[in-house]
Design a protein around this nucleic acid. Structure first.
Length: 956
RNA sequence: GCCGGAAUGGCGGAACUGGUAUACGCGCACGACUCAAAAUCGUGUUCCUUUUAGGAUUGAGGGUUCGAUUCCCUCUUCCGGCACCA
């Protein structure tokens, strides 16, 4: 008997498949529906592929292979995303050219991919660094340019001092460059920028029609950060101009007690008064030199300077001072805000630090309006013992209907009664303490709808919160209403343990003892004619009123910034623009594309923010395509996100030299049916390529509005100890080593999939590789031992059931992308087959069918083993071109079933009955079982019977 | 702080629509084969107890239900994303 030896079968089939073009996708196949399975193409780094890559491609491969067997014309392509910083940095370090490094890395990657037995259509492979490819990247860029969607701007960009290049917003993670972890600086350079913000709304809207997991969609929505509000003009005192602010809370405009501008705001210089000039200039200079990281670190300690100017609040007519502070960002909204310290945490911190006024205009309201409620003024008094830092609470018993629970001292005010007097009276009446000192009152009221148990009435109270200090413990006898007597107990509690059950009480407590801004909705106060309106209503009203005076308009703002598209590096697609003195930036004519990246000797990045291409004088100096006059080429290159923004389209027509892809082929292949990739690209590549695609759709270049119909993300494989795999930790699992060690690609594929649900981050388990290898070995031996020569027609219902069951299970699990349980199902099936084999003749037409079916189910997961076994069983053609097996439910039912028996919900045993047994026969069977009947001695009150599953006796 | 996701044996994980929790694999223990080991095969393996049996158990606590890993409420912890975005 031959032993299972992956080394001798895997390379053989890999070669056969490639020679036969087994996995080539067919353009315009009329017989079969198309299916495009896409996995993110790799960045060919110097360190080779790791197990995480293999998880992604194996999952894609399983889907692609099964879809082929299900009768789809499957395109499962692969290519290389090879431009970009890491290769260039690697090349510089190892003193080779990026071209050479890329070539070597790709060769290495290719070898590894082939050794895994993936069913890629290699005839369509692409490289983003191939001039025949980047010609079209440049051509597509020029579509943006020609529509005014690519523009140049001198802006302060995120600058990576290590990579010496500007970065997009998306590439900065926690103030550091995501590729090299270097803290990012700001640098003012002229940049190419793509107007992705024009598509902000579309990028959100488009998600509605896509099959993306909710969390991925949310992450994109979050990143785009839509917020609706208003732009409002504040007139500058003594100037003609006014300053526009953006706010999402126009309802709080009466609470705006000062204004803050970003230090970079263009009006700062103009409006600063003579006496403030020195301090303002110093502050602006310091802010400019701070990096993002430093700005973030100063989050807790806000700083700013008064510029000496005042503006007029357009709603209240009040005169308020103008400050600058670096917590206001020039890049968002208008770079200026109306500061409402009472209702914004940041403004509150700022106002507290600089002693600016805090004016509350939105008052909290709790509960919904109740029938016949009585309006009243009330106090909630917090009595604090300064000696022990404890507060006095009243325990009214369990809370019900917004009444009772742990509360502070509270009660209604008599008509015309002073708040402090009234509070003092309540303290003494309810608790008996006489010597208390008023500490402070809340600068706003709290409104509460509630039902009073004591009075048996609905109330709507306007509550004044007051804080009193206990002077001494002298007490008189409390003076309680009849309804209050014996209803509560008083308790002194440390401040940290005081947790009032009523929201109004809690708000009073928190505001009195800890202060802070109120950021929630509520009722308007101190807002002139708008008083007592709900804040949400006020918001629309005040915008409407100001809009009618031409002082405001509604506006939507996005967190998303335009996409900085220039890199001051060598290893990227040259931006196909020529700068002419007369005509400015001129597009390279389409016929002159590609603008090839010249070979230069010194491609190291420069310190001054100029691309190394600038030194290639021969290449740079050219003539203007419009006037023929002297001109210079653009020397910045594209980011490595450029090539990957449209690569899936090129797979549809990879060799086309006339177009990026022909419309016919685009119409046939349409879009990607399932896109599998990493979570790290959700706000980078995935967002960028959706943007490109949407823009191309608008130009009529592609037939679908979105590139990827469905998206899934595989989880990360951690090292066995649960830490992240990384080169520095030295805990990376190298797939090539695993294959060469004798386990082979099939066992590795199974191990990677069997590990956990595909989308779950989970630690690698080297031992499980032994498990999947053993499983394959068992399959192998099952086939080797099977003897075709003595074949008979042995009818076995058990065999039929086992095979039909596994077909159903694997088919359904694959539909749900539940790959790990599909493998568990296959393992279970093999275990069952071994058991059957022991009792059976093990040589019949049916066994032949069973083994063939098993091989087909195994084919997507372990393609080499399946192919070899298929050949041994006498199968024709490749197994991967066979039809996916079907199943029939009628073989799944057995005539005897086991029903669980519960007594009072507790499992007491089970009975075996006929498959169609009714309640009565199950009851009889259960009662005749002595293990069960001993629990049924009492009176059986009720029986719950779920046919085929369970019977539950309720016994008294 | 805000938004998402998760928590089940020694470990990775399974459980359809509320219906026998712990499938499958790893590990471990014992046995067979062997001079021996590896490999392979077989048996057992949630925990506790006074072990022919009983009790507990899906992060914690409560609720709905005949019955809850599954539904509802409160909380804890972990992971991912965003974070001075007005």
């Amino acid at each position: 008997m031959r032993r299972y030896s992956p080394k001798s079968i895997e390379p053989k089939w890999q070669k056969t498949w490639e020679d036969n073009g087994t996995y080539h996708a067919v353009d315009f196949d009329k017989e079969k529906p198309k299916y495009v399975m896409l996995t993110e193409f790799p960045y060919p780094s110097g360190s080779g592929m790791h197990i995480g890559h293999m998880r992604e491609y194996t999952l894609g491969d399983v889907i692609a292979r099964q879809k082929r067997m299900l009768g789809f014309n499957v395109l499962y392509p692969m290519g290389y995303d090879a431009f970009g910083l890491p290769t260039e940095n690697y090349a510089i370090k190892n003193k080779v050219t990026p071209q050479k490094a890329t070539e070597e890395n790709i060769n290495n990657f290719q070898k590894q991919l082939v050794s895994m037995g993936f069913s890629f259509d290699w005839s369509r492979s692409i490289k983003t660094t191939d001039p025949n490819y980047y010609k079209w990247t440049q051509w597509l860029f020029l579509r943006f340019f020609k529509q005014g969607m690519a523009y140049q701007a001198e802006i302060a960009v995120n600058w990576c001092p290590f990579c010496k290049t500007g970065l997009s917003n998306e590439e900065v993670v926690n103030g550091r460059h995501e590729r090299c972890d270097t803290p990012v600086d700001k640098k003012l350079i002229k940049q190419w920028v793509l107007r992705i913000t024009d598509y902000a709304e579309r990028l959100i809207e488009g998600l509605n029609d896509l099959d993306y997991p909710k969390w991925i969609a949310e992450q994109q929505i979050n990143w785009i950060g839509r917020s609706k509000g208003a732009e409002i003009d504040f007139k500058l005192e003594g100037h003609d101009e006014s300053i526009k602010v953006f706010t999402t809370r126009p309802d709080t405009i009466y609470g705006a007690t000062f204004m803050v501008l970003a230090p970079e705001h263009p009006l700062v210089g103009q409006i600063t008064t003579e006496e403030q000039k020195v301090s303002v200039n110093t502050y602006v200079r310091e802010a400019a030199s701070k990096s993002d990281l430093e700005r973030q670190e100063s989050e807790k300690d806000k700083s700013g300077v008064f510029v000496g100017a005042y503006v007029i609040n357009p709603a209240s007519g009040e005169r308020i001072p103008v400050w600058i502070a670096d917590y206001i960002l020039m890049g968002y909204g208008t770079g200026a805000i109306m500061a409402v310290p009472a209702h914004d945490d940041r403004d509150f911190a700022f106002a507290t630090k600089y002693g600016l006024p805090i004016k509350y205009v939105v008052e909290p309201e709790y509960g919904d309006s109740l029938d016949g409620e009585i309006e009243k003024e009330a106090v909630v008094a917090i009595l604090r013992d300064p000696e022990t830092d404890e507060v006095l609470m009243l325990d009214w018993g369990p809370r019900k209907d917004r009444y009772g629970g742990m509360l502070f001292i509270g009660g209604g005010l008599d008509t015309g009664e002073d708040i402090i007097e009234g509070a003092k009276r309540e303290i003494t009446e309810e608790t008996g303490y006489v010597n208390v000192r008023f500490n402070k009152g809340l600068p706003f009221s709290v409104h509460s709808h509630y039902y009073s148990n004591v009075k048996n009435a609905n109330y709507y109270a306007k509550i004044h919160g007051v804080l009193f200090d206990l002077v001494d413990h002298e007490k008189v006898r409390p003076k309680l209403d009849e309804g209050e007597k014996g209803k509560f107990k008083t308790k002194w509690l440390p401040i940290s343990k005081a947790e009032p059950d009523d929201e109004a009480h809690r708000q009073v407590f928190l505001s009195l003892l800890f202060g802070g801004a109120l950021t929630k909705e509520g009722l308007m106060a101190n807002s002139g004619k708008y008083d007592r309106l709900p804040s949400s209503v006020m918001r629309d009203k005040v915008i409407a009123d100001l809009t009618s005076k031409g002082l405001a308009y509604e506006r939507i703002n996005y967190r998303l910034r335009d996409w900085i598209f220039s890199r001051q590096r060598y290893w990227g697609e040259p931006i196909p623009i020529i700068h002419c003195e007369k005509h400015g930036a001129v597009a390279v004519p389409d016929k002159d594309l590609p603008v090839k990246l010249p070979n230069i000797t010194n491609y190291e990045p420069t310190h001054d923010g100029e691309s190394p291409l600038a030194s290639a004088t021969d290449w740079v100096n050219t003539i203007c395509p419009q006037c023929g006059g002297p001109a210079r080429r653009e020397t910045d290159t594209m980011p490595n996100w450029a090539g990957s923004s449209w690569y899936y389209l090129r797979y549809f027509d990879p060799k086309n030299s006339k177009q990026f892809a022909s419309l016919d082929k685009l119409k046939y292949w349409q879009d990607v049916d399932l896109y599998l990739g990493g979570t790290e690209h959700i706000t980078l590549h995935l967002l960028y390529s959706r943007f490109w695609h949407q823009f191309f759709f608008d130009l009529g270049l592609v037939p679908t509005p979105e590139p990827y119909k469905a998206r899934r993300s595989q989880g990360i494989i951690l090292a066995a100890d649960g830490t992240k795999m990384s080169k520095s930790r030295g805990n990376i699992v190298d797939p090539t080593e695993v294959i060469d060690s004798g386990y082979g690609a099939d066992a590795l594929r199974l191990a990677v999939i069997f590990l956990a649900p595909y989308d779950q981050t989970t630690p690698w388990s080297p031992e499980s590789l032994g498990g999947t290898f053993r499983f394959l070995q068992r399959v192998w031996n099952l086939v080797q031992e099977y003897n075709t020569s003595e074949g008979g027609t042995n009818e076995s219902n058990d065999l039929k059931r086992v095979i039909n069951r596994v077909v159903k299970r694997v088919s359904q699990d694959l539909l749900n992308l539940s790959f790990n349980t599909a493998i568990a199902g296959l393992m279970e099936c093999v275990n069952d087959l071994y058991a059957l084999k022991a009792q059976d003749s093990y040589s019949s037409v049916e066994w032949q069918w069973a083994l063939e079916t098993l091989a087909k189910l195994l084919a997507p997961f372990a393609p080499h083993m399946a192919e070899e076994v298929w050949e041994q069983l006498g199968g024709e053609q490749s197994i991967h071109l066979q039809e996916w097996p079907g199943y029939d439910d009628k073989f799944l039912v057995s005539d005897r079933i086991v029903i669980a028996v519960q007594v009072n919900g507790k499992l007491r045993g089970d009975v075996e009955v006929g498959a169609d047994a009714d309640q009565q026969s199950v009851e009889v069977a259960a009662k005749s079982d002595p293990k069960i009947s001993r629990y049924l001695e009492g009176k059986v009150e009720k029986v719950i019977f779920v046919p085929g599953r369970i019977i539950n006796f309720l016994v008294k």
